[in-house]
């Protein structure tokens, strides 16, 4: 049940911004090199995050990306939703009519509802703020 690398790199990029972006905007190049992904791919992901209002851009020299929302309002669940469309692994959980089956009582849907709830509960409780604090506590804050 793999997530795309987009979701994972998005969270890495956001964590990088939260930890190292305190003094001002960071360039895509710096973030991409910090988390070891290609700048072009990082840029593509950040465009999606910007469209969703999680980050902003500043033009000009010294410009780049910055977090545009408080870190405690950015959750892992939100990041997955932006990049994957949803945290739900089976479509019928959100939309019963997405099922092509005409069987009236689906005998397995309840399992998917339960799995989806478990994912959402965990992912929505994990905030960027908590993740950043733990990262700084573990690495001393300078562990680039």
């Amino acid at each position: 049940m793999r997530l795309s690398t987009k979701s994972r790199y998005a969270l890495e990029g956001l964590l990088y911004l939260a930890v190292y972006g305190g003094a001002g905007p960071l360039s895509v190049k710096e973030i991409a090199s910090g988390i070891q992904v290609s700048p072009a791919y990082m840029e593509q992901i950040f465009v999606q995050l910007k469209r969703s209002g999680l980050i902003g851009t500043q033009r000009g020299s010294g410009g780049g990306f910055f977090l545009s929302r408080p870190e405690d309002t950015i959750t892992v669940g939100k990041v997955i939703e932006i990049l994957e469309g949803s945290t739900v692994p089976v479509r019928c959980v959100e939309n019963r009519s997405s099922c092509s089956g005409r069987v009236r009582h689906c005998i397995s849907r309840r399992v998917w509802v339960r799995v989806s709830d478990a994912i959402a509960e965990t992912a929505n409780a994990l905030t960027l703020k908590a993740i950043k604090d733990q990262f700084i506590a573990e690495t001393g804050g300078a562990g680039k």
Partner: peptide
């Protein structure tokens, strides 16, 4: 890389655990 290893341990493994626990 360090950030990826950290997030694997503290975020993605936590989600994996919540899925396997329920199942």
């Amino acid at each position: 890389p360090p950030i990826r290893a950290f997030l694997n341990r503290n975020v993605w493994d936590a989600i994996d655990r919540s899925i396997t626990d329920v199942l």
